[in-house]
């Protein structure tokens, strides 16, 4: 499919893994560190690992925060990217992009933090999960989470049910790493390309 997929390029992005995953699907994703670089972008990937506050500062400094929020095509936030798209986060006690009207919390009382490893996805709905069987496993690595919401398009259970994926208009967020989730993750990315 002939389309321009761009990846938000900032310090907290696990860029190589995401680029590799798209390359395996035959899509050459490009990097964008500044809003002007998004002129020809059809779709946007907003990855992220690490701490929320410094990541958000980098995004604000470059103007990419507004570029993401105002992007006209489909946007896919991954892990920290998804969390930064929420209204606020307990991590660093900061405001996010406000795309998902949710507050990110820290896991509390779970046996092990971070929640790290393969966990099963439930209540799957929407086009991203086409062809993904209920109960499929995805790879998670996170200490903060989005509590369960009515607009969740996938849920996961780690001592409590939380939002594994969320959709709001053309904005999608995945708490797990599709680029590291084997065949399941590749199917989800393929579905995003096909949107």
């Amino acid at each position: 499919m002939n389309q321009n997929i761009y990846i938000v390029h900032y310090k907290a992005g696990n860029i190589a893994s995401v680029m590799n995953a798209f390359a395996r699907l035959g899509v050459h994703a490009r990097l964008a560190a500044r809003p002007t670089e998004l002129k020809n972008a059809d779709k946007l990937i907003f990855p992220g690992v690490g701490h929320a506050r410094p990541a958000m500062e980098v995004l604000r400094a470059s103007g990419m925060d507004e570029a993401i929020a105002n992007f006209k095509g489909p946007v896919l936030g991954i892990c920290l990217g998804m969390q930064l798209m929420a209204a606020r986060s307990e991590e660093g006690n900061m405001e996010g992009l406000g795309i998902f009207p949710a507050a990110i919390r820290r896991f509390n009382g779970q046996p092990k933090i971070p929640h790290m490893g393969w966990n099963s996805l439930h209540d799957l709905c929407g086009p991203l999960f086409g062809g993904v069987p209920e109960g499929s496993h995805a790879y998670f690595v996170h200490s903060y989470y989005m509590p369960d919401r009515a607009d969740a398009i996938a849920r996961c259970n780690y001592d409590e049910v939380f939002t594994a994926a969320v959709a709001h208009d053309r904005f999608f967020g995945l708490q797990f790493h599709p680029e590291k989730s084997g065949q399941t993750g590749m199917t989800i990315l393929k579905n995003f390309i096909a949107l």
């Binding site: 590799n20 790879y139 790493h177 590291k180 989730s181 084997g182």
Partner: peptide, 8 residues
């Protein structure tokens, strides 16, 4: 390896 596999 990173190019070839989609697991962590």
């Amino acid at each position: 390896v990173a190019t070839a596999v989609s697991i962590p």
